[in-house]
Design a protein around this nucleic acid. Sequence first.
DNA 1: CGGACTGTTGAGAAATTTCAATGTTGGTGG
DNA 2: CCACCAACATTGAAATTTCTCAACAGTCCG
Lengths: 238, 238
Amino acid sequence: MDRFVAKLRGRQALSEEDEQQLREAGWTHRDYARHQVIVRAGEDLTEGHLLLSGFAARAQQDNAGNRQIVGIGVGGDLLDIHGVILGRLEQDIVALSACQIASLPHAKIKELVVRSPGIQKTVWLQAAIDHSIQCNWIQALGTRRGTARLAHLFCEMQLRLALVGIATEMGYPLPLSQQELADYAGMTHVHLNRCLRELREARLVSFAQGWARVHQWERLKELACFDEAYLNLRLIEV
Amino acid sequence: MDRFVAKLRGRQALSEEDEQQLREAGWTHRDYARHQVIVRAGEDLTEGHLLLSGFAARAQQDNAGNRQIVGIGVGGDLLDIHGVILGRLEQDIVALSACQIASLPHAKIKELVVRSPGIQKTVWLQAAIDHSIQCNWIQALGTRRGTARLAHLFCEMQLRLALVGIATEMGYPLPLSQQELADYAGMTHVHLNRCLRELREARLVSFAQGWARVHQWERLKELACFDEAYLNLRLIEV
DNA sequence: CGGACTGTTGAGAAATTTCAATGTTGGTGG
DNA sequence: CCACCAACATTGAAATTTCTCAACAGTCCG
Protein backbone atom coordinates (compact mmCIF):
# COMPACT_ATOMS: atom_id res chain seq x y z
CA MET A 1 0.00 0.00 0.00
CA ASP A 2 2.32 2.80 1.11
CA ARG A 3 4.88 2.82 -1.58
CA PHE A 4 5.68 6.36 -0.68
CA VAL A 5 6.45 5.63 2.89
CA ALA A 6 8.77 3.05 1.43
CA LYS A 7 10.09 5.68 -0.95
CA LEU A 8 10.92 7.92 1.96
CA ARG A 9 12.69 5.05 3.56
CA GLY A 10 14.70 4.22 0.47
CA ARG A 11 15.85 7.76 0.03
CA GLN A 12 16.72 8.59 3.54
CA ALA A 13 17.83 5.29 4.93
CA LEU A 14 15.20 4.78 7.57
CA SER A 15 15.68 1.62 9.56
CA GLU A 16 13.18 -1.20 9.15
CA GLU A 17 11.94 -0.49 12.61
CA ASP A 18 11.31 3.14 11.74
CA GLU A 19 9.50 2.11 8.62
CA GLN A 20 7.38 -0.27 10.59
CA GLN A 21 6.51 2.47 13.04
CA LEU A 22 5.60 4.83 10.25
CA ARG A 23 3.40 2.31 8.51
CA GLU A 24 1.53 1.44 11.65
CA ALA A 25 1.17 4.94 12.98
CA GLY A 26 -2.50 5.03 12.09
CA TRP A 27 -2.70 7.10 8.93
CA THR A 28 -6.09 8.17 7.70
CA HIS A 29 -6.48 7.90 3.96
CA ARG A 30 -8.53 10.34 1.97
CA ASP A 31 -9.01 11.11 -1.68
CA TYR A 32 -9.39 14.59 -3.07
CA ALA A 33 -10.56 15.70 -6.47
CA ARG A 34 -8.93 18.42 -8.53
CA HIS A 35 -9.48 21.84 -6.96
CA GLN A 36 -10.59 20.50 -3.62
CA VAL A 37 -9.05 22.25 -0.65
CA ILE A 38 -6.94 19.94 1.49
CA VAL A 39 -5.94 22.48 4.12
CA ARG A 40 -7.52 25.88 4.42
CA ALA A 41 -5.42 28.90 5.33
CA GLY A 42 -5.88 30.15 8.86
CA GLU A 43 -7.96 27.26 10.11
CA ASP A 44 -6.85 25.20 13.07
CA LEU A 45 -4.79 22.31 11.90
CA THR A 46 -4.54 19.13 13.88
CA GLU A 47 -3.16 16.68 11.36
CA GLY A 48 -0.17 16.52 9.08
CA HIS A 49 -0.70 15.53 5.45
CA LEU A 50 1.40 13.24 3.32
CA LEU A 51 0.74 13.32 -0.41
CA LEU A 52 0.79 9.75 -1.66
CA SER A 53 -0.07 10.47 -5.26
CA GLY A 54 -1.09 13.46 -7.30
CA PHE A 55 -0.09 17.11 -7.26
CA ALA A 56 -0.93 19.78 -4.71
CA ALA A 57 -0.32 23.51 -4.61
CA ARG A 58 0.34 25.81 -1.69
CA ALA A 59 -1.51 28.95 -2.64
CA GLN A 60 -1.62 32.30 -0.95
CA GLN A 61 -3.98 35.13 -1.65
CA ASP A 62 -3.68 38.76 -0.65
CA ASN A 63 -6.43 41.26 0.13
CA ALA A 64 -6.35 42.50 -3.43
CA GLY A 65 -7.20 39.01 -4.60
CA ASN A 66 -3.89 38.25 -6.26
CA ARG A 67 -3.07 34.62 -6.01
CA GLN A 68 0.42 33.24 -5.77
CA ILE A 69 1.29 29.57 -5.76
CA VAL A 70 4.26 29.39 -3.44
CA GLY A 71 5.03 25.73 -3.91
CA ILE A 72 3.99 22.54 -5.61
CA GLY A 73 3.93 19.22 -3.80
CA VAL A 74 4.40 15.93 -5.61
CA GLY A 75 3.98 12.32 -4.58
CA GLY A 76 5.85 11.54 -1.37
CA ASP A 77 5.93 15.10 -0.06
CA LEU A 78 4.86 16.08 3.41
CA LEU A 79 2.65 19.05 2.63
CA ASP A 80 2.43 20.87 5.91
CA ILE A 81 5.41 20.13 8.08
CA HIS A 82 5.44 23.58 9.55
CA GLY A 83 1.80 23.35 10.41
CA VAL A 84 2.74 20.83 13.10
CA ILE A 85 4.38 23.49 15.18
CA LEU A 86 2.26 26.49 14.20
CA GLY A 87 -1.08 24.73 14.38
CA ARG A 88 -2.21 26.39 11.16
CA LEU A 89 -0.97 27.48 7.76
CA GLU A 90 -1.06 30.84 6.06
CA GLN A 91 -1.67 29.15 2.73
CA ASP A 92 -4.34 26.98 1.28
CA ILE A 93 -3.25 23.58 0.15
CA VAL A 94 -5.24 22.69 -2.92
CA ALA A 95 -5.37 19.54 -5.01
CA LEU A 96 -4.15 20.20 -8.55
CA SER A 97 -5.13 16.72 -9.65
CA ALA A 98 -6.86 13.82 -8.01
CA CYS A 99 -4.84 13.28 -4.84
CA GLN A 100 -4.40 10.48 -2.37
CA ILE A 101 -3.62 11.88 1.02
CA ALA A 102 -2.60 10.12 4.21
CA SER A 103 -2.91 12.17 7.32
CA LEU A 104 -1.73 11.73 10.88
CA PRO A 105 -2.56 13.72 14.02
CA HIS A 106 0.08 16.20 15.09
CA ALA A 107 0.34 14.55 18.47
CA LYS A 108 1.25 11.31 16.83
CA ILE A 109 3.79 12.99 14.57
CA LYS A 110 5.43 14.66 17.53
CA GLU A 111 5.55 11.36 19.34
CA LEU A 112 7.18 9.59 16.39
CA VAL A 113 9.71 12.36 15.97
CA VAL A 114 10.67 12.26 19.62
CA ARG A 115 10.91 8.50 19.70
CA SER A 116 12.90 7.87 16.55
CA PRO A 117 15.97 9.83 15.47
CA GLY A 118 15.60 8.33 12.00
CA ILE A 119 12.09 9.67 11.58
CA GLN A 120 13.14 12.99 13.03
CA LYS A 121 15.89 13.15 10.47
CA THR A 122 13.51 12.30 7.65
CA VAL A 123 11.19 15.11 8.60
CA TRP A 124 14.01 17.60 8.99
CA LEU A 125 15.49 16.57 5.71
CA GLN A 126 12.24 17.18 3.91
CA ALA A 127 11.97 20.57 5.59
CA ALA A 128 15.52 21.41 4.54
CA ILE A 129 14.87 20.42 0.94
CA ASP A 130 11.62 22.40 0.87
CA HIS A 131 13.57 25.37 2.12
CA SER A 132 16.21 24.86 -0.52
CA ILE A 133 13.60 24.67 -3.24
CA GLN A 134 12.08 27.90 -2.02
CA CYS A 135 15.42 29.69 -1.97
CA ASN A 136 16.01 28.67 -5.53
CA TRP A 137 12.58 29.74 -6.58
CA ILE A 138 13.15 33.13 -4.98
CA GLN A 139 16.31 33.33 -7.00
CA ALA A 140 14.44 32.42 -10.16
CA LEU A 141 11.76 35.03 -9.49
CA GLY A 142 14.29 37.69 -8.65
CA THR A 143 16.91 37.18 -11.30
CA ARG A 144 15.30 35.45 -14.25
CA ARG A 145 12.37 36.36 -16.37
CA GLY A 146 10.19 34.98 -19.05
CA THR A 147 11.47 31.83 -20.63
CA ALA A 148 14.43 31.37 -18.30
CA ARG A 149 12.13 31.38 -15.30
CA LEU A 150 9.90 28.76 -16.84
CA ALA A 151 12.93 26.74 -17.86
CA HIS A 152 13.92 26.56 -14.22
CA LEU A 153 10.49 25.33 -13.30
CA PHE A 154 10.54 22.55 -15.88
CA CYS A 155 14.04 21.50 -14.88
CA GLU A 156 13.13 21.26 -11.24
CA MET A 157 9.97 19.29 -11.87
CA GLN A 158 11.78 16.91 -14.17
CA LEU A 159 14.21 15.94 -11.42
CA ARG A 160 11.75 15.90 -8.54
CA LEU A 161 9.41 13.68 -10.50
CA ALA A 162 12.16 11.43 -11.82
CA LEU A 163 13.10 10.77 -8.21
CA VAL A 164 9.71 9.26 -7.50
CA GLY A 165 9.56 7.49 -10.84
CA ILE A 166 6.92 9.71 -12.39
CA ALA A 167 9.04 11.46 -15.01
CA THR A 168 10.26 9.20 -17.79
CA GLU A 169 11.74 9.79 -21.21
CA MET A 170 8.18 10.43 -22.36
CA GLY A 171 8.02 13.49 -20.13
CA TYR A 172 5.89 13.98 -17.06
CA PRO A 173 2.45 15.08 -15.94
CA LEU A 174 2.09 18.62 -14.66
CA PRO A 175 -1.63 19.06 -14.14
CA LEU A 176 -1.83 22.83 -14.02
CA SER A 177 -3.77 25.13 -16.27
CA GLN A 178 -1.86 27.96 -17.83
CA GLN A 179 -3.50 30.29 -15.35
CA GLU A 180 -2.23 28.19 -12.47
CA LEU A 181 1.22 27.94 -13.95
CA ALA A 182 1.20 31.71 -14.31
CA ASP A 183 0.22 32.08 -10.66
CA TYR A 184 3.25 30.02 -9.81
CA ALA A 185 5.65 31.69 -12.21
CA GLY A 186 4.68 35.17 -11.13
CA MET A 187 3.50 36.41 -14.50
CA THR A 188 0.21 36.91 -16.31
CA HIS A 189 -1.30 33.97 -18.13
CA VAL A 190 -1.03 35.91 -21.36
CA HIS A 191 2.68 36.35 -20.99
CA LEU A 192 3.09 32.78 -19.81
CA ASN A 193 1.39 31.59 -22.93
CA ARG A 194 3.83 33.47 -25.11
CA CYS A 195 6.81 32.22 -23.17
CA LEU A 196 5.58 28.66 -23.50
CA ARG A 197 5.35 29.16 -27.21
CA GLU A 198 8.91 30.43 -27.35
CA LEU A 199 10.13 27.39 -25.46
CA ARG A 200 8.14 25.12 -27.71
CA GLU A 201 9.40 26.76 -30.88
CA ALA A 202 12.97 26.59 -29.63
CA ARG A 203 12.25 22.89 -29.06
CA LEU A 204 13.44 23.03 -25.48
CA VAL A 205 10.27 22.00 -23.64
CA SER A 206 6.71 21.49 -24.66
CA PHE A 207 3.77 21.74 -22.35
CA ALA A 208 0.19 20.94 -23.27
CA GLN A 209 -2.81 19.34 -21.64
CA GLY A 210 -1.06 19.02 -18.32
CA TRP A 211 1.87 17.13 -19.75
CA ALA A 212 5.41 18.45 -20.00
CA ARG A 213 8.22 17.07 -22.04
CA VAL A 214 11.79 18.23 -22.05
CA HIS A 215 13.38 17.90 -25.47
CA GLN A 216 16.83 19.31 -24.85
CA TRP A 217 17.86 18.86 -21.26
CA GLU A 218 21.28 20.41 -21.49
CA ARG A 219 20.21 23.50 -23.33
CA LEU A 220 17.24 23.93 -21.02
CA LYS A 221 19.49 23.75 -17.98
CA GLU A 222 21.77 26.29 -19.52
CA LEU A 223 18.95 28.69 -20.25
CA ALA A 224 17.68 28.35 -16.69
CA CYS A 225 21.14 28.53 -15.10
CA PHE A 226 19.95 25.42 -13.36
CA ASP A 227 22.18 23.69 -10.85
CA GLU A 228 20.53 20.65 -9.36
CA ALA A 229 22.73 20.46 -6.27
CA TYR A 230 20.06 22.19 -4.21
CA LEU A 231 17.61 19.33 -4.54
CA ASN A 232 19.90 17.08 -2.51
CA LEU A 233 18.90 14.12 -4.59
CA ARG A 234 21.65 11.86 -3.42
CA LEU A 235 21.44 10.10 -0.10
CA ILE A 236 22.65 11.70 3.06
CA GLU A 237 23.97 9.48 5.79
CA VAL A 238 22.60 9.70 9.28
CA MET B 1 25.87 38.54 27.83
CA ASP B 2 23.32 36.62 25.75
CA ARG B 3 20.39 38.92 25.65
CA PHE B 4 19.26 37.20 22.50
CA VAL B 5 19.17 33.79 24.02
CA ALA B 6 17.02 35.43 26.61
CA LYS B 7 14.99 37.00 23.81
CA LEU B 8 14.34 33.60 22.32
CA ARG B 9 13.26 32.44 25.71
CA GLY B 10 10.91 35.35 26.23
CA ARG B 11 9.24 34.86 22.93
CA GLN B 12 8.81 31.17 22.95
CA ALA B 13 8.40 30.39 26.59
CA LEU B 14 11.48 28.30 27.18
CA SER B 15 11.74 26.98 30.69
CA GLU B 16 14.48 28.30 32.95
CA GLU B 17 16.17 24.96 32.73
CA ASP B 18 16.17 25.12 28.92
CA GLU B 19 17.56 28.60 29.04
CA GLN B 20 20.27 27.47 31.39
CA GLN B 21 21.17 24.63 29.06
CA LEU B 22 21.29 26.95 26.09
CA ARG B 23 23.50 29.46 27.85
CA GLU B 24 25.96 26.87 29.00
CA ALA B 25 26.07 24.86 25.81
CA GLY B 26 29.49 26.19 24.95
CA TRP B 27 28.92 28.82 22.32
CA THR B 28 31.90 30.22 20.50
CA HIS B 29 31.69 33.96 19.97
CA ARG B 30 33.07 35.63 16.90
CA ASP B 31 32.85 39.08 15.39
CA TYR B 32 32.52 39.73 11.70
CA ALA B 33 32.97 42.95 9.79
CA ARG B 34 30.69 44.16 7.03
CA HIS B 35 31.01 41.99 3.94
CA GLN B 36 32.83 39.19 5.67
CA VAL B 37 31.58 35.75 4.79
CA ILE B 38 30.17 33.89 7.76
CA VAL B 39 29.28 30.66 5.97
CA ARG B 40 30.44 29.87 2.47
CA ALA B 41 28.13 28.06 0.05
CA GLY B 42 28.97 24.46 -0.56
CA GLU B 43 31.59 24.12 2.13
CA ASP B 44 31.27 21.55 4.87
CA LEU B 45 29.43 23.01 7.78
CA THR B 46 29.93 21.73 11.28
CA GLU B 47 28.50 24.51 13.39
CA GLY B 48 25.23 26.36 13.61
CA HIS B 49 25.30 30.16 13.79
CA LEU B 50 23.19 32.42 15.94
CA LEU B 51 23.22 36.09 15.06
CA LEU B 52 23.43 38.05 18.29
CA SER B 53 23.59 41.50 16.77
CA GLY B 54 23.87 43.00 13.33
CA PHE B 55 22.44 42.03 9.96
CA ALA B 56 23.32 39.12 7.73
CA ALA B 57 22.26 38.16 4.23
CA ARG B 58 21.77 34.76 2.66
CA ALA B 59 23.02 35.27 -0.86
CA GLN B 60 22.96 32.94 -3.79
CA GLN B 61 24.79 33.32 -7.06
CA ASP B 62 24.18 31.53 -10.32
CA ASN B 63 26.66 30.60 -13.04
CA ALA B 64 25.85 33.77 -14.90
CA GLY B 65 26.97 35.79 -11.88
CA ASN B 66 23.56 37.12 -10.93
CA ARG B 67 23.25 37.55 -7.24
CA GLN B 68 20.06 37.14 -5.28
CA ILE B 69 19.71 37.78 -1.60
CA VAL B 70 17.19 35.18 -0.50
CA GLY B 71 16.84 36.31 3.08
CA ILE B 72 18.00 38.77 5.69
CA GLY B 73 18.80 37.72 9.22
CA VAL B 74 18.46 40.10 12.14
CA GLY B 75 19.51 39.91 15.77
CA GLY B 76 18.30 36.72 17.43
CA ASP B 77 17.98 34.68 14.25
CA LEU B 78 19.45 31.27 13.79
CA LEU B 79 21.08 31.69 10.40
CA ASP B 80 21.60 28.15 9.22
CA ILE B 81 19.15 25.80 10.84
CA HIS B 82 18.89 23.66 7.77
CA GLY B 83 22.63 23.35 7.57
CA VAL B 84 22.47 21.15 10.66
CA ILE B 85 20.85 18.36 8.75
CA LEU B 86 22.37 18.96 5.31
CA GLY B 87 25.91 19.59 6.48
CA ARG B 88 26.26 22.51 4.10
CA LEU B 89 24.35 25.42 2.61
CA GLU B 90 23.73 26.38 -0.98
CA GLN B 91 24.00 30.03 -0.06
CA ASP B 92 26.68 32.25 1.33
CA ILE B 93 25.87 33.93 4.59
CA VAL B 94 27.46 37.35 4.55
CA ALA B 95 27.63 40.06 7.18
CA LEU B 96 25.78 43.17 6.07
CA SER B 97 27.01 45.10 9.08
CA ALA B 98 29.36 44.35 11.93
CA CYS B 99 27.96 41.13 13.36
CA GLN B 100 28.29 39.28 16.61
CA ILE B 101 27.90 35.58 16.03
CA ALA B 102 27.64 32.75 18.50
CA SER B 103 28.19 29.32 17.06
CA LEU B 104 27.67 25.82 18.35
CA PRO B 105 28.74 22.47 16.88
CA HIS B 106 26.01 20.57 15.08
CA ALA B 107 26.51 17.60 17.38
CA LYS B 108 25.77 19.78 20.38
CA ILE B 109 22.71 21.26 18.70
CA LYS B 110 21.35 17.83 17.93
CA GLU B 111 21.96 16.77 21.49
CA LEU B 112 20.14 19.78 22.91
CA VAL B 113 17.23 19.26 20.55
CA VAL B 114 16.89 15.62 21.50
CA ARG B 115 17.16 16.31 25.21
CA SER B 116 14.80 19.21 25.52
CA PRO B 117 11.36 19.46 23.92
CA GLY B 118 11.38 23.17 24.65
CA ILE B 119 14.54 23.76 22.71
CA GLN B 120 13.33 21.52 19.94
CA LYS B 121 10.22 23.58 19.74
CA THR B 122 12.18 26.81 19.65
CA VAL B 123 14.25 25.60 16.74
CA TRP B 124 11.21 24.31 14.85
CA LEU B 125 9.38 27.51 15.46
CA GLN B 126 12.16 29.57 14.02
CA ALA B 127 12.26 27.25 11.00
CA ALA B 128 8.51 27.63 10.55
CA ILE B 129 8.70 31.41 10.73
CA ASP B 130 11.60 31.49 8.28
CA HIS B 131 9.50 29.40 5.96
CA SER B 132 6.58 31.70 6.37
CA ILE B 133 8.71 34.73 5.63
CA GLN B 134 9.98 33.08 2.48
CA CYS B 135 6.48 32.21 1.31
CA ASN B 136 5.47 35.79 1.70
CA TRP B 137 8.51 37.05 -0.08
CA ILE B 138 7.78 34.70 -2.95
CA GLN B 139 4.32 36.21 -3.03
CA ALA B 140 5.76 39.70 -3.05
CA LEU B 141 8.15 38.85 -5.88
CA GLY B 142 5.47 37.14 -7.89
CA THR B 143 2.54 39.48 -7.48
CA ARG B 144 3.86 42.92 -6.62
CA ARG B 145 6.24 45.18 -8.41
CA GLY B 146 8.16 48.33 -7.89
CA THR B 147 7.04 50.36 -4.94
CA ALA B 148 4.58 47.79 -3.59
CA ARG B 149 7.33 45.19 -3.40
CA LEU B 150 9.58 47.54 -1.50
CA ALA B 151 6.73 48.55 0.74
CA HIS B 152 6.36 44.93 1.76
CA LEU B 153 10.03 44.75 2.59
CA PHE B 154 9.91 47.83 4.78
CA CYS B 155 6.79 46.61 6.56
CA GLU B 156 8.30 43.26 7.34
CA MET B 157 11.54 44.70 8.61
CA GLN B 158 9.70 47.20 10.77
CA LEU B 159 7.92 44.41 12.60
CA ARG B 160 10.80 41.97 12.79
CA LEU B 161 13.05 44.64 14.20
CA ALA B 162 10.45 46.01 16.57
CA LEU B 163 10.19 42.53 18.05
CA VAL B 164 13.82 42.62 19.10
CA GLY B 165 13.66 46.24 20.16
CA ILE B 166 15.69 47.63 17.28
CA ALA B 167 12.97 49.53 15.46
CA THR B 168 11.61 52.52 17.33
CA GLU B 169 9.53 55.51 16.36
CA MET B 170 12.75 56.94 14.92
CA GLY B 171 12.86 54.15 12.36
CA TYR B 172 15.36 51.38 12.13
CA PRO B 173 18.80 50.55 10.72
CA LEU B 174 18.90 48.61 7.47
CA PRO B 175 22.56 48.49 6.56
CA LEU B 176 22.30 47.63 2.89
CA SER B 177 23.54 49.59 -0.06
CA GLN B 178 21.02 50.26 -2.79
CA GLN B 179 22.74 47.59 -4.86
CA GLU B 180 22.24 45.06 -2.07
CA LEU B 181 18.66 46.08 -1.55
CA ALA B 182 18.13 45.65 -5.27
CA ASP B 183 19.64 42.15 -5.10
CA TYR B 184 17.08 41.36 -2.47
CA ALA B 185 14.12 43.01 -4.15
CA GLY B 186 14.82 41.37 -7.49
CA MET B 187 15.26 44.55 -9.49
CA THR B 188 18.11 46.63 -10.82
CA HIS B 189 19.68 49.22 -8.56
CA VAL B 190 18.62 51.92 -11.00
CA HIS B 191 15.01 50.94 -10.77
CA LEU B 192 15.25 50.49 -7.03
CA ASN B 193 16.56 54.00 -6.73
CA ARG B 194 13.56 55.38 -8.58
CA CYS B 195 11.14 53.34 -6.52
CA LEU B 196 12.74 54.60 -3.33
CA ARG B 197 12.30 58.10 -4.57
CA GLU B 198 8.64 57.47 -5.25
CA LEU B 199 8.13 56.12 -1.75
CA ARG B 200 10.01 59.06 -0.31
CA GLU B 201 8.05 61.61 -2.29
CA ALA B 202 4.79 59.95 -1.32
CA ARG B 203 6.06 60.30 2.26
CA LEU B 204 5.44 56.63 2.98
CA VAL B 205 8.98 55.50 3.82
CA SER B 206 12.37 57.06 3.55
CA PHE B 207 15.59 55.16 3.28
CA ALA B 208 19.04 56.71 3.30
CA GLN B 209 22.45 55.83 4.68
CA GLY B 210 21.32 52.47 5.88
CA TRP B 211 18.47 53.88 7.91
CA ALA B 212 14.79 53.35 7.16
CA ARG B 213 11.90 55.24 8.56
CA VAL B 214 8.26 54.53 8.01
CA HIS B 215 6.18 57.70 7.94
CA GLN B 216 2.71 56.35 7.25
CA TRP B 217 2.38 52.85 8.52
CA GLU B 218 -1.21 52.28 7.53
CA ARG B 219 -0.86 53.58 4.01
CA LEU B 220 2.34 51.64 3.56
CA LYS B 221 0.68 48.42 4.67
CA GLU B 222 -2.13 49.08 2.29
CA LEU B 223 0.19 49.65 -0.64
CA ALA B 224 2.06 46.44 0.17
CA CYS B 225 -1.11 44.41 0.87
CA PHE B 226 0.76 43.55 4.03
CA ASP B 227 -0.78 41.17 6.52
CA GLU B 228 1.46 40.60 9.48
CA ALA B 229 -0.13 37.33 10.60
CA TYR B 230 2.56 35.33 8.88
CA LEU B 231 5.27 36.59 11.21
CA ASN B 232 3.65 34.81 14.13
CA LEU B 233 4.66 37.57 16.44
CA ARG B 234 2.48 36.52 19.28
CA LEU B 235 3.45 33.70 21.59
CA ILE B 236 2.59 30.15 20.82
CA GLU B 237 2.03 27.77 23.69
CA VAL B 238 3.93 24.53 23.88
C1' DC C 1 44.72 64.34 -5.85
C1' DG C 2 43.02 59.95 -7.76
C1' DG C 3 40.30 55.88 -7.38
C1' DA C 4 36.60 53.04 -5.78
C1' DC C 5 32.18 52.64 -4.29
C1' DT C 6 27.63 54.62 -3.86
C1' DG C 7 23.70 57.22 -5.27
C1' DT C 8 21.16 59.88 -8.93
C1' DT C 9 19.29 61.02 -13.33
C1' DG C 10 18.15 60.73 -18.50
C1' DA C 11 16.76 58.37 -22.57
C1' DG C 12 15.89 54.62 -25.49
C1' DA C 13 15.14 49.54 -25.70
C1' DA C 14 13.03 45.53 -24.10
C1' DA C 15 9.98 42.95 -21.25
C1' DT C 16 5.56 42.58 -19.25
C1' DT C 17 0.88 43.82 -18.36
C1' DT C 18 -3.63 45.11 -19.68
C1' DC C 19 -7.55 45.02 -22.41
C1' DA C 20 -10.04 42.89 -25.82
C1' DA C 21 -11.31 39.57 -29.08
C1' DT C 22 -11.37 34.92 -30.96
C1' DG C 23 -10.56 29.92 -31.17
C1' DT C 24 -10.65 25.37 -28.92
C1' DT C 25 -12.14 21.80 -25.93
C1' DG C 26 -14.93 19.03 -23.03
C1' DG C 27 -19.03 18.23 -20.72
C1' DT C 28 -24.12 18.49 -20.10
C1' DG C 29 -28.86 18.44 -21.17
C1' DG C 30 -32.25 18.27 -24.70
C1' DC D 1 -26.27 13.55 -31.99
C1' DC D 2 -26.29 18.35 -31.50
C1' DA D 3 -26.60 22.91 -29.15
C1' DC D 4 -24.76 25.30 -25.74
C1' DC D 5 -21.94 26.78 -21.99
C1' DA D 6 -17.87 27.28 -19.35
C1' DA D 7 -13.18 26.78 -18.92
C1' DC D 8 -9.00 27.14 -21.16
C1' DA D 9 -5.75 28.68 -24.77
C1' DT D 10 -4.20 31.94 -28.19
C1' DT D 11 -3.39 36.25 -30.47
C1' DG D 12 -3.13 41.47 -31.36
C1' DA D 13 -2.19 46.07 -29.96
C1' DA D 14 -1.41 49.70 -26.81
C1' DA D 15 0.02 51.10 -22.18
C1' DT D 16 3.12 50.52 -18.54
C1' DT D 17 6.99 48.80 -16.12
C1' DT D 18 11.56 47.58 -15.97
C1' DC D 19 16.14 47.16 -17.87
C1' DT D 20 20.22 48.78 -20.15
C1' DC D 21 23.51 51.98 -21.19
C1' DA D 22 25.57 56.07 -20.09
C1' DA D 23 26.79 60.03 -17.66
C1' DC D 24 27.67 62.63 -13.53
C1' DA D 25 27.79 63.97 -8.43
C1' DG D 26 29.09 62.79 -3.62
C1' DT D 27 31.88 60.51 -0.20
C1' DC D 28 35.47 58.15 1.79
C1' DC D 29 40.24 56.84 1.94
C1' DG D 30 45.02 56.15 0.87
